[in-house]
């Protein structure tokens, strides 16, 4: 959206533009791609949307590992549709980032080079088929808690992408929970698998909400811009309050001895989160980090000749890209 030099706003204009932007945010209206926006707003959004897109694409892998071995044809179809959805979600999000001047191939390069990150949750391996169910129930459940408020993001393309994604995530969470319910009605080994998976994924899913509020320096600005709607701790509490009764219906134990209902506040209290582990995993030391990135790199590099071939064909046949 760069304007020719002659049209570049003067200082006075810039103040007027800033005022218009502020008024749009204050009225809870959406900012659209061609609107003027502060550079910090744009950059923060690109970072946020890009890491979200990367998370969707990398998030295909932990469950994708079970696609070939899914234990029934129905489960295979469900899982394939889900993993395909995640590719679609990544694409919606890259599109939203591109409305801000980013470029998908470039964002992918930054992911592969480790300069942009994805959610640490996907650095944990999926050890049994119960993990597929638990990812749907807990990980997608946490994602929904994070994402639903983003349907009201002040940035229009992001908000619209999130609306569609949230609708589809609802299918993801339900298929996960239904798989777990079925497994809990199955053999003793199946029930043990479910409990084991819950034990491994519960704490990482709590970490998905990010560090405690007093340790999140940029949150205030993001709140003011309307691109963050609730604090990390608020969303985490909401998630725990939703998940505990669901665990009871399922018949599994959440691995937290400190978990208890506080009748006074109407919320569940929970134990302390191990933020050291979080930092380790987020800085690339998660069990599966190298493998996840290597597969993305291979998909890009091994197939580069395909992308080039289609471009060459388009050029030859006069359907070339601008």
């Amino acid at each position: 959206m760069s304007a020719p030099p002659l049209d570049r706003p003067t200082v006075a204009d810039e103040q007027a533009l800033q005022d218009l932007f502020d008024a749009t945010i204050a009225a809870d209206h959406r900012i659209e791609p061609r609107d003027w926006m502060p550079e910090g707003y744009r950059k923060t959004l690109v970072r946020q949307i890009a890491q979200h897109a990367h998370s969707e694409i990398i998030g295909m892998q932990p469950e994708g590992d079970w696609l070939l071995a899914a234990p029934s044809l129905r489960r295979k179809a469900i899982l394939l549709a889900k993993v395909q959805d995640e590719a679609g979600h990544g694409m919606y999000l890259y599109s939203a980032a591109e409305t801000l001047g980013a470029d998908r191939a470039d964002l992918t390069d930054k992911l592969i080079e480790g300069r942009q990150k994805y959610s640490s949750i996907f650095n944990y391996p999926t050890l049994t088929y119960a993990d597929v169910g638990v990812i749907g129930w807990l990980v997608d459940g946490a994602a929904i808690c994070n994402q639903v408020p983003l349907c009201r993001s002040s940035y229009g393309p992001y908000a619209r992408a999130m609306i569609r994604i949230c609708k589809e995530e609802s299918f993801h969470q339900r298929q996960g929970y239904e798989l777990l319910l079925t497994m809990m009605r199955g053999t003793p080994e199946q029930r043990a698998m479910v409990q084991d998976a819950v034990d491994r994924w519960w704490w990482p899913s709590l970490m998905m909400f990010g560090p405690p509020d007093d340790d999140s320096p940029n949150s205030a600005q993001s709140m003011a811009w309307g691109i963050k709607r609730h604090s990390n701790d608020e969303l985490r509490q909401r998630y725990v309050d939703m998940s505990v009764p669901q665990a009871e219906v399922l018949g599994v134990t959440l691995p937290d001895p400190d978990l208890s209902y506080d009748a006074e506040t109407g919320h569940y209290r929970f134990g302390a989160i191990d933020w050291d582990e979080f930092k380790r995993v987020i800085s690339g030391n998660g069990p599966a980090n190298a493998e996840r990135i290597a597969r993305r790199r291979a998909a890009r590099d091994d197939n580069a000749w395909v992308t080039e071939a289609a471009t060459a064909y388009a050029t030859k046949h006069g359907r070339a890209a601008a």
């Binding site: 694409i57 295909m60 892998q61 994708g64 696609l67 070939l68 044809l73 295979k76 179809a77 394939l80 549709a81 993993v83 395909q84 590719a87 679609g88 990544g90 694409m91 890259y94 597969r295 291979a298 998909a299 091994d302 197939n303 395909v306 992308t307």
Partner: peptide
């Protein structure tokens, strides 16, 4: 399905999954 997470471009990932889902339904 072996192409999923390994396909050229995300657009093709989605297309291959659609074909595989159709065939799985027929099977």
């Amino acid at each position: 399905t072996q192409w999923i997470t390994a396909a050229p471009e995300l657009e093709e990932e989605v297309a291959i999954a659609n074909v595989a889902l159709d065939l799985l339904g027929q099977a």
